[in-house]
Design a protein around this nucleic acid. Structure first.
Lengths: 255, 255
DNA sequence: CGCGATTTGTGCACGTCTTCACAAGCGCCT
DNA sequence: AGGCGCTTGTGAAGACGTGCACAAATCGCG
């Protein structure tokens, strides 16, 4: 939504890593491909076809090929993609070649879990600092990291060169924390608090709301229940009395 | 993706609650509207304009109006929407009028946090049971709920009428758990494990991968860095030397 | 050396989502 | 009662994403 692009700089990047200006939908799928590729690499596969990789990532094979073609990918026709090469390509595009430092603010229930989540480290992210506004929590050690007061953010950010801020505070505190993060130069924020953040232009915010996901599931559940409950729908089609009820949506994924 | 609709039953639902067959994108936003509406209700607002609600939910006002119009909403021109009425409408559409029971499988780091997350209960979800495959964890009490072994799932599901399953296990165990959930009749699954699940038709799966969100942010961070690093871009535009560097994407939200 | 099997990369058509812009409707004030 | 300002609801256009289907390319084998 609202992608302001520099109108004056069309594609001419010269010898630089080449930023192909990927579609947002493609970017959102690349990490999934990457995960599937790592799995394949661990199981000893040297190459993989678009069919194989797409099914491992849970997408259409044509979509996968188009996604990879956007980053000028190196597949060989008749063979497939070189797994190791593709991993490098995608990691390079996603900027995962350098380890990025993450600051986590809010070590409540969720923050605790995030601080201990090993999925971050394995993808090249390093949780560099933990913060909380509650003095009672300051000093606590989680996963070898000591929780500091959020007022220390400027000082610590200067030392650690924080790239990404994660907000896991209650909703009322989130905007204030976001402002503080922006103030110390953070331009990417992952927000777990159930509220919208207003940030200046140039700052990216992604929101994850666990309750929202459940509510979306609830809707589909509700719809499925109503459909199976209605006995008379398309009278012309109802020939078989048996398993017809469940013939419906196969909704999947969606990040 | 892949929405198979009943071709023979077009909209004629008669006097039933009326399932308007909402666009998926709209469904994904309704919970956000709902949250904003609850905020407004608590601060004493009786009515709200599309402009007010849309900014509180972080979306375009036209988009909001179209979303609400899809569910045949009752706004009054010149005035706005009745907050209480709209809350009822949306909750009804999302199927939140009945409290849905959730089974949570995997009480590791993340599962612990989810079990204690109060955002679920406040949105009408009840965590009805906790499961884990690790015998060492069985018996532990979290938030007044005792952790049971995953083999007990069939028996407990029969008692509690589970509507939604949440998978918070390591990736290798996720598919097995999904199969077990499906076997006991669960048709909606929220998957936190970093892997794709294969489920039979009629079962909805939504995936949340925290690491993926970070990688998407990493991409944008990477792109911003490359842009600002390039000194010569749109030469015509570079008049002010000051804060121009960050003039760029305002990417937001996206669930 | 050529041929066929296989797989990538992509043009094209289609569906979905977004956004603008404006007519229709409602309440309030005079 | 009438007019005026405000807000909703929606038609239409455009952007975006998806998936089919096929040509181009590559490898292996006879």
């Amino acid at each position: 939504m609202s992608q302001h692009r520099h109108p004056g700089a069309p594609g001419r990047a010269g010898a630089v890593p080449a930023l192909p200006d990927l579609p947002e939908a493609t970017v959102a799928r690349l990490p999934e491909y990457l995960r599937a590729l790592h799995n394949l690499a661990e199981t000893g596969h040297e190459t993989v076809s678009s069919e194989g990789l797409s099914s491992a990532a849970g997408v259409n094979s044509a979509k996968l090929r188009k996604d990879l073609s956007h980053l000028g990918s190196y597949g060989t026709r008749g063979v497939g993609y070189d797994v190791a090469l593709l991993i490098d390509q995608i990691e390079s595009v996603l900027g995962l070649t350098q380890c990025r430092s993450v600051a986590l603010v809010g070590v409540g229930n969720l923050g605790h879990a995030l601080a201990g989540y090993d999925g971050f480290a394995s993808r090249g992210f390093r949780i560099a600092a933990l913060f909380d506004a509650d003095r009672a929590r300051v000093g606590e050690v989680i996963n070898d990291l000591v929780v500091r007061h959020v007022d220390e953010l400027p000082r610590v950010a200067a030392e650690e060169s924080i790239a990404i801020g994660v907000i896991a505070t209650p909703a009322p505190a989130a905007q204030r924390v976001a402002d503080q993060l922006v103030a110390v130069g953070v331009t990417s924020i992952l927000n777990f608090a159930p509220c919208v953040l207003s940030v200046p232009e140039g700052v990216d915010v992604r929101k994850v709301d666990l309750a929202i996901e459940l509510q979306i599931l609830s809707f589909h559940e509700h719809r499925k229940a109503s459909l199976t409950a209605l006995p008379a729908a398309g009278a012309a089609l109802t020939a078989l009395p048996g398993g017809l009820a469940a013939t419906d949506t196969q909704e999947a994924i969606g990040t």
